[in-house]
Amino acid sequence: MTADPAIDLRGVSKRYLTRGGEVEAVSSLSLAIRAGEFVAVIGPSGCGKSTLLKMVAGIETPTAGTITVEGGTPDQARRRRLFGVVFQDPVLLPWRTLEGNVSLPLEIVGSRRPERARSARELIELVGLAGFEASLPAQLSGGMKQRAAIARALILNPSILLLDEPFGALDEYTRNQLNLELLRIWSQSRVTALLITHSIQEAVLLADRVVVLTPRPARVAMEVDVTLPRPRQLAQLRTRECFELVGRVSAALYDRLEREAGRERGEPAAALAPGHLDSR
């Protein structure tokens, strides 16, 4: 596999100019994602994960470095409509029915009505919402709304799925249920997936590779290859292999926190954490 990566970030930095001065959200971050790969990004809240995703999607521009998406700039990729996005909020339009919401992207690209209806029904069925086509968002539960958002993200047949904490607002049971759905859908379509999450378990269950980011400004602290065999099942979460993977991600994620706590207790930092992590 020497093909060019689907998404290639090289030395990407992002500074925001705010009233309080400059905020460096992302700092010389490099990351390559293969076509068809499922990468989960995990990091402390406010470290720059959403910023990273927005830059990949072409709706924020990096202040330094380059991002290549399928051979072009993120902006070109966006105009070619290569992306499907799901955010933490389902952002359904409250005056549209489920079907109307799911088919919104098709309206924007100018598809005809019969084709829109057909595709929307297919996708609604795929995410397990058949029978609710005519419901308004207010009549759907949180999990159902997020399923609708997934259907909407897939309706243009994107080659890249960008997910920004899509299940972050859901209860654990619904979250795991949707994780399984996502796995099923992803294994059918094999799109390239970039998932941002703050659940270690979710990252390990879904991804081929987990990328741990440092506290702000975000850079890659560690990458963990998830060796769990596919197709994945919830039961794998209880295997020894999975425990070890979760432990490694957790160690990288909490590295700085643990060292700071150690320093307060007057212990030498080296005694607590392996030195290979960037802790600047």
């Binding site: 927005k54 999607a57 072409g58 709706i59 966006r78 105009r79 409509r81 992306f83 996005v85 955010f87 933490q88 909020d89 952002v91 339009l93 919104l104 992207p105 924007i108 690209v109 243009l156 960008l162």
Partner: peptide
Amino acid sequence: VDEQTTHLLRVLDA
């Protein structure tokens, strides 16, 4: 219009 909806529309190149 809230921020995430705006982002969605940008990604769709509306």
